[in-house]
Design a binder for these strands. Structure first.
Lengths: 127, 127, 127, 127
DNA sequence: GTGGTCTAGACCACA
DNA sequence: GTGGTCTAGACCACT
């Protein structure tokens, strides 16, 4: 279990990111029920209110639908999931590029470095 | 200060990475003296023995040189620094790509995503 | 002071509606600072957390901007305010029509009744 | 049950309005017997004297008739009911328009808004 | 059971 | 001072 949180960003935000990743990886499929706020609270050792805040945020992004008295479910709207997939991709890339810039790498170095890496890993697919 | 360490990898390894980054960023220039093991131990709230181990690793990579009785210094050998620069780049890229793969992104998505990102950030460099 | 809340809808929601109305009426102009969450909490005899929830909702609608350490301010974006003006108008009309339907009035009765009322009040503008 | 009263207007008045609405909606048909003052007092958790006052007002408007020893009945006079229907309509409209004016909407906005709303709800009657 | 709201009170970051 | 987060615990509405 990866149930630790960084101190920098709010827990509800990190929890939301984590759930988005689970959906992208297919660990949570469209229509799946998320753990109840109380259960997730225990799993993540976080207050149920914080979990609820997370679910509310995800609902605001239309990534999740909540049905009163039933639970919270991953949306079945493929469009929304596609949008999420793309925005998360952009976020990750932005984070990566920012880090590389901080270490002094130029755009050209990053781009050629990535191309080289992908090519070489394609030639020797195993390890 | 970024003085926290992840639990996954050994501290000495993370410390070494951090110092390499400082060199890449220019915060530590070739010929600069590193803090003493004791001082670095305090700064990073880490055991001096761990710092010692870090310096030893860096010396093995020819990134730093230890002069008995004087301290530890960043190498002035540009070749070594260049090698380090490239191997660290590759490491970072590898880490990034692995993460993206875990989230289900394909090589093509990563490559085009990066290209798009760099292009768009070039058009609107600030804000 | 109209500081009472109905039991049917959540307080944070009613508070948000009230603030929107104040903006529409011009009691709160674009750029104006809202009372701090604590002060508003006292004014409305509501918990500061509830006020914050209200402000967060309003921010989500781009009706309000919050500046950390400074306060919460009515947006100066006229477009957003216009959108709000229109959506609130539609809401009010919907509420009115629903009520009239419940009392058995037909669309035609409502429409002609309104026209008649407006015409007669135009002829005798006072009282 | 909608058995709450606002603080602004007298309870007997609000009770009278509520009964008028019930008649308009057909929940109370011409000739129907109203609950006894005692019973209505319990139903609405209001003092029987207040109910008495309500019935007296309604009788003054010829909306109900009291038959000694039998009870209070909705009038069968269609004309009176029609008048009531119209005056209540006007009241509701007046209340609505006043509210809209307070929020800064012009007569034109109200009128066109209503027309638009009715048209759009006619096209998509459900949902 | 489920989620939703609200309170009270604590601690943090920003300015 | 400001808003933002988090917790603990209570009560509600829906099923």
């Amino acid at each position: 279990m990866t149930d630790t949180f960084h101190a920098s960003k709010p827990i509800y935000f990190q929890l939301a990111e984590r759930i988005q990743r689970q959906i992208l990886r297919g660990e949570l499929a469209p229509g799946d029920k998320l753990p109840s706020v109380r259960e997730m609270g225990i799993q993540s050792s976080v207050n149920p209110n914080t979990v609820q805040r997370t679910y509310r945020e995800l609902e605001g992004m239309n990534i999740v639908e909540t049905k009163r008295g039933q639970g919270t479910f991953v949306t079945e709207d493929k469009t929304v999931l596609d949008v999420m997939r793309n925005s998360l991709k952009k976020e990750e890339i932005s984070r990566f590029v920012t880090g590389m810039h901080q270490m002094g790498y130029t755009d050209r170095e990053i781009e050629s470095g990535l191309t080289d890496f992908l090519n070489s890993s394609r030639e020797e697919p195993k390890q």
